[in-house]
Simulated assay, not measured.
Amino acid sequence: MTKQSVQAVSVEPSALLCITQHAAAHPYEAIHGVLIGPRAGIVQAAIPVCHGTPTRPLVETALGLIQTNIGQKTIVGWYTAPALLQDTKAGPVALRMVANLETDDVEPVLLVLQNEKLAACRKGEGTAENLLKAFGKDDLGGQWVRPLECTIKDASSAIEQMKTGTSSSPTIHDFVDHLEGSASTPWVTL
């Protein structure tokens, strides 16, 4: 199988909801997680890994647990939301994480939640357009900085779910929350 560069990313509403709830659960820290789908460029689910800076043992353990629970699906990328409201780009940690996900078969994508747009959506002032920025691997520098088209399936429904899901107390817990004992719900559910 030959790996092809991803040109566009399609995100399911449930994945957007998970990412936005993860950001709402940890509003003052960067968040990180894994994207799951049937093939590169299609995101069906997001699995929250951590808030703050992920460590290598934490990520390796999380990825091992995810791999045992995703069945026929595959890891298709990484997502992040910067710690500061006005930040719009992925930091070096997220760039390193997505680079480590690359395999001979899959070129992962990087999704960056746009915090200011999320805040506007939560107030009823925004749309799903540009809520997530998607990036693919740049052929010249080998970094995930090549902008990709990003669409959210059934965007209006996704925004309504996101508004109701993040306006109340978030129910999304990342792997770190589980390790700290602050979560009683299952971590990986697909």
Results as ranks from 00 to 15, higher is better:
V6N: 00
M97W: 08
Y28R: 15
E107Y: 15
D105S: 13
A134D: 02
T166A: 08
L85T: 14
V106E: 05
W144M: 08
P82W: 04
V49Y: 12
L111H: 06
D174L: 07
D154K: 04
A46N: 02
V145T: 13
A46M: 05
Q4W: 10
P38S: 11
I75W: 11
A8T: 06
S168M: 13
A155F: 05
V98W: 00
A90E: 06
E116T: 14
W78F: 07
L16V: 11
D104F: 15
L85M: 10
A40L: 03
L65W: 00
L95A: 11
H51W: 02
W78H: 09
T2F: 05
R39F: 02
I31M: 11
R56A: 13
Q21C: 09
S169T: 13
C18N: 02
P48A: 07
H51V: 01
I159H: 05
S169N: 13
I31R: 10
H178K: 05
L118Y: 06
V59L: 08
T185W: 12
I75M: 12
A119C: 07
C150M: 05
T80Q: 10
I159Y: 08
T88A: 09
T88W: 08
P92F: 14
D87E: 12
Y79I: 00
T80H: 07
Y28W: 12
Q44H: 12
A15P: 11
P108A: 01
R122K: 01
A158Q: 01
A45F: 08
G41D: 03
A155P: 04
F135W: 06
E160M: 08
A158R: 00
L179G: 14
I70E: 08
K133F: 04
V145A: 09
N130E: 15
P170S: 12
I42A: 09
Q86M: 13
S14G: 11
T61K: 07
A15Q: 05
P147F: 02
A23T: 10
N115S: 11
S14Y: 11
